[in-house]
Structures are given as structure tokens and as C-alpha cells.
Design a protein around this nucleic acid. Sequence first.
DNA 1: TGTAGTGCTTGACTTTCTAGAGCGCTTGGT
DNA 2: ACCAAGCGCTCTAGAAAGTCAAGCACTACA
Lengths: 129, 129
Amino acid sequence: MSKDAPYCPVYDSIELLQEKWVLHIVRALLGGPHGFNELSRAVGGANTTTLSQRLEHLERLALVEKTIESTMPPKTRYELTPAGRELQTIIDAIDAWARRHMRRCQEQEARAEAAGQPATPKSGRSAAD
Amino acid sequence: MSKDAPYCPVYDSIELLQEKWVLHIVRALLGGPHGFNELSRAVGGANTTTLSQRLEHLERLALVEKTIESTMPPKTRYELTPAGRELQTIIDAIDAWARRHMRRCQEQEARAEAAGQPATPKSGRSAAD
DNA sequence: TGTAGTGCTTGACTTTCTAGAGCGCTTGGT
DNA sequence: ACCAAGCGCTCTAGAAAGTCAAGCACTACA
């Protein structure tokens, strides 16, 4: 189809970042290392199955490093590698944009739904919690 | 942690940006207005069903504007609103990061897969095409 | 007339994500 | 000693999200 481009790192990194929870995971990890369950809570309740898949993927990409401390309740620790830590710039950009626009966007959305159709009821959490 | 927070624009915008194709759509639209099919091709072959859902959502958030030109083959035009155009900073950050790290990440991934298990065979496209 | 392009919608199917239980292990309370 | 609760996960089954393919109404070009 349109995939003549032999290789586009930007395309691929968008593919990565839009995997569910990936950005949340990175954001949490930028705040320091986390254990597994701890991380699950930090990202807003991701289920463990998905979370371990994502972490495995990020590990394979060498963006996250997993350390098992062999103390007796063997604790796991996930933390960003240098490359992973550089994702900070992306999170910062999202942060800045979000603070400036997100609230207004959601007002617009509420208005649009009220006016038109209830449509895709995908965001049930944001305002409700 | 993030669950108790009554409202977090950053969390919500991450939720938005990780919807499949959203970042691709924004990136394409930053290059100028697009028609529907044209956009579908530009983002790398998104199917029309998902695409119209995403566009509808972005429209409701007032990040994208849809114009129907009432010429005789009535052409549709999707373009970013001012708020949408400010997503440029995010795309730029992704772009910069991708150019610096993505390729190496994928090499790491290939190495990890070769060494360990074939694991989640999710990226069959990037390098293979 | 046939083929291709526009902008979508509908229905069936597949991939992805989720809930919930469970496992082995340790710590803390009674 | 015993039970509840935490850790770090993995498994299974089902719900949700995304995709394919077809089709519609219309124009344009050969």
C-alpha cells in the first residue's frame, strides 16, 4: 500500500508509544524505580498481564532495566535506562500541552456529546473519579 | 497515587495520545490538511473504520476540524485547529528521540529475541518490509 | 462501459486488553 | 500455629478495541 518507506524511526516509535500503558509506565518510571505491583498502581491500575507484557517489551528495547535483588523476599526493581530516561522530553512536551489544552478539550467534548450523539463513550473515568 | 487524583490532564492526554493512530494522524495533519482516504494512506494504511472513529473523537475535542467543500464531488478536508497544531511540540520531541534512539532500540530487540525467546511477535513490519 | 477515485458505513472476524484466580514465598498479627 | 495480606508474577476465559472486506452514491477519465 503506502508502505514504500523502507524504515522510519518516527513511525516506529509512535507505534511503540501508543501501546497501551507505555507512556504511563514511562511517566511513572521517570519518578524513580518501582516494583511490579507498585508500578501497576502508579500507572493507574493496569492489570498485571498487560503490564508484564509491556515491561518485557520495553526491556527488550533496552529502555527499561529489570533488577532482581536477591534479598530474601526477592524484590524486583524496574527502572529506566539512559535511553529510556531521555523519553523525559516527550513526557514533558505532553505535560506542557496537557496543562494548556486538555481541560478545554474535554469541555468541548462534553459539549459535543450533549449537542450531538452520546457517541463513543470511551472516557468514563476522567471526570467521574 | 494517580487514582485518587480528582483530575489529571496529563493522564488524560496520555490516554488520548495512545489511542491507536492518533499520533500518526496528528503527524500527518501537521503537514497540512488531508482528505479522508488521503489521510488513511498518509498514516500508513489505517483502516477507514478506525480512522473515522479517531477523527470523530479528535473533532469532538476540537483538535481537528472537518470541512466539507460543497463543490460537486463534495470533498472533505481535515485539518488541525490551533490547539491541535500545538501538538507539534510533542511530535517534535518524539521525532528527536526517535532519530537518536529508535534504531538502536530495535537492534537490541532483535538481539533479545535471537538470544531468548521469540516472545511476543508483535513487530513483524518495521524491519521486515 | 469499465475502472478508479472520493468519503464514508455496516457486519463479521481477529487481535489486544482485562478480570480474576492461583502459586510460591515472606511478613505480621493473635 | 494459623490466617490474612503483601510480593511478583502466570494462566484462562471473556470483553473490548481494532481490522478486513464489501458496498453505496457519486464523479472522472479512457
